[in-house]
Design a protein around this nucleic acid. Structure first.
Lengths: 337, 337
DNA sequence: AATTGGCACTCGGAAGTACGGAGTGCCAGT
DNA sequence: ACTGGCACTCCGTACTTCCGAGTGCCAATT
């Protein structure tokens, strides 16, 4: 139905339109790419491509631009991920290596990705639920207040204040702390509720109320933080593009955590690249944008996702290359720290 | 030189221009505000105001718009801060009361302020240097790694990993922890270096290297984090306005931590409102924006600043009211937690 | 059957022109 | 000191014209 030349034509249209941002006509095509045929032939091919919904013309007798469906075909079958230049690889390395804590890693990553792609970058913090406990700490900070600190194997640190409604001895705290750590060391966060279920039985009767308070805060933390943190950068790059939907809609969508979450695609199968084009996006305000996302994590375990958002008219091969490279590198950094 | 009526005229021009976004002419002025004189008189007054640089016309025979100097006079002498409606007060209260840690307080504050003013809100995290130590914790997280956790009286928690290059006994850690806390409890962060100077002398000879490592990381943390964290929200509100400088410049400026820092005005005298109009701004890209900022903190101590950024053509009285109210309320929240 | 050159047609965007209206400055009169 | 009147300026809008890139179709060619 679509012979090789027609596919070539589609690819050429996408490439030209992406680089010039102007509808591309049959004449311009034969000039710039050396297809061995005349413009009239191309016109026939274009008519077919249009009929099938891969391209469209903004108005009668203008050039063609790719439709979402056209971009989809391009991404799936007509392009290959473009690897980064060695200069870019080096940039990633030096930029990310300086990071000294998780916040910093995520912050640097998102800025890096935005700069690399000249688009909006989105990075999700490593999920709590998939990581495991490295250490639990219990610290008295005032007469009736404890601080619960939870450290995960991904370097994430959560802290919460616990009101105790009564004095608690150093000894009780020490005991409880030891108990918690033996119960939880190395325990996956998803398994924490099960692991601590019988803990109250192991403490002295006097300490039961405190243990209960601590546990309830601990469990609460796990649940609440499941509501994941997510950040973006590079909004300035949006200003360079003009969207059919107003810029405002896009910016608004970006400031909604929930939308960002959906944007990256719920879970997705591990580390492979996901591309969502135009109307494939779940959110109303992002119907004229595309998202390229990938999972990242240590080993074969995906901890979270990151990606890039830009106009549907984006350079998919390069963007995909950048996202993939950054995702891999962040995984390495996390594994190392 | 400027009699009362001329000041009235200037005020009227600012108010009308802010609400309509169109150059205001003499005729329109006498219609909308009941000044008891004719348009010809107003024209004379306007000529004087223009000569003095308070207003300008975009082109010959158009209405007048205020200059930065005009806004300055308006803010300084012709307007009063507009208190919030009780509904707004209630909104602030309910919105901020749900916060459960410092990150959350700051996050909610910045979103609240953006929503309240329909502009871009900027909030600086409470400064470390001005706050004091509430607690220091030292936790072994792996065989040769310690985690240093520093909790301040503003609820801020800093953590850093320390490589020890050798096994450290629980006992040594306990000893060091106790020492640190007695040295530092309640100590202002600025005074920490002095307070710990003689600490190595107090530990057993064997523990000197570890103590040194811990101290160096501790001091490093204080210095590095002096590089303050700052966040913004409400970028979508910018899209509604059109700037003479491109939107892109403004967005770019907003994504630079350094610029944001300067934006709020270095220290400023405590809690009073600071307004910086147009060209009074330090940054190149923000010459067509104004900033309304205020300090916030507990008691009479200013810990950080927050503010709002918008077009020079903004509703100063309302914005100032919102910024002041939010700053006060955040102070209360911090004091209470 | 696929390709090609030729041709009439379409339509958006740029450039030019005309015009109304809001606003100004100035001046003479109260 | 204020006001009414008047001539003038110029922006923004609307209307027109015109050019060119691009198209679809068809008959001719391979």
């Amino acid at each position: 139905m679509l012979d090789d030349r027609k596919l070539d034509v589609l690819r050429a249209i996408v490439e030209d339109y992406v680089s010039t941002n102007e509808p591309v006509g049959s004449k311009a095509l034969v000039d710039r790419h050396n297809l061995g045929v005349s413009s009239a032939t191309i016109r026939n091919d274009m008519a077919v491509l249009e009929e099938q919904g891969y391209i469209a013309q903004p108005h009668t007798s203008a050039g063609r631009i790719p439709t979402d469906k056209g971009y989809r075909l391009f991404v799936d079958r007509l392009s290959t991920v473009k690897p980064l230049s060695s200069a870019e690889r080096r940039a990633i390395e030096t930029f990310l290596n300086g990071a000294y804590d998780l916040d910093d890693v995520v912050g640097r990553t998102v800025r890096l990705l935005a700069q690399l792609t000249r688009q909006v970058a989105v990075v999700q913090y490593p999920s709590l639920t998939r990581s495991s406990v490295r250490h639990v700490e219990l610290v008295p900070v005032a007469s009736r207040r404890l601080l619960l600190v939870l450290i995960t194997n991904t370097g994430r640190v959560e802290q919460r204040v616990i009101e105790t409604y009564g004095e608690v001895s150093e000894e009780s705290i020490g005991h409880l702390r030891a108990l918690l750590n033996t119960c939880l060391d190395g325990c996956g966060l998803g398994e924490v509720p099960g692991a601590v279920a019988d803990l109250p039985d192991k403490v002295a009767a006097d300490d039961r109320p405190i243990a209960a308070a601590v546990l309830s805060v601990l469990l609460e933390t796990l649940v609440e933080k499941h509501d994941e943190k997510i950040v973006f950068a590079g909004a300035a790059n949006l200003a360079a593009v003009d969207f059919s939907r107003s810029l405002r809609d896009v910016l608004e969508a970006l400031e909604e955590q929930v939308v960002l979450m959906r944007l990256l695609g719920e879970t997705g199968d591990s580390s492979s690249l996901t591309v969502r084009i135009g109307t494939e996006n779940p959110d109303e305000g992002l119907r004229s944008t595309s998202v390229v996302a990938a999972g990242y994590g240590v080993g074969d375990q995906t901890l979270a996702r990151l990606g890039v958002l830009g106009p549907t008219r984006m350079d998919y091969p390069s963007t995909m290359g950048a996202v993939r490279a950054v995702a891999r590198y962040v995984g390495q950094i996390l594994a190392g720290s």
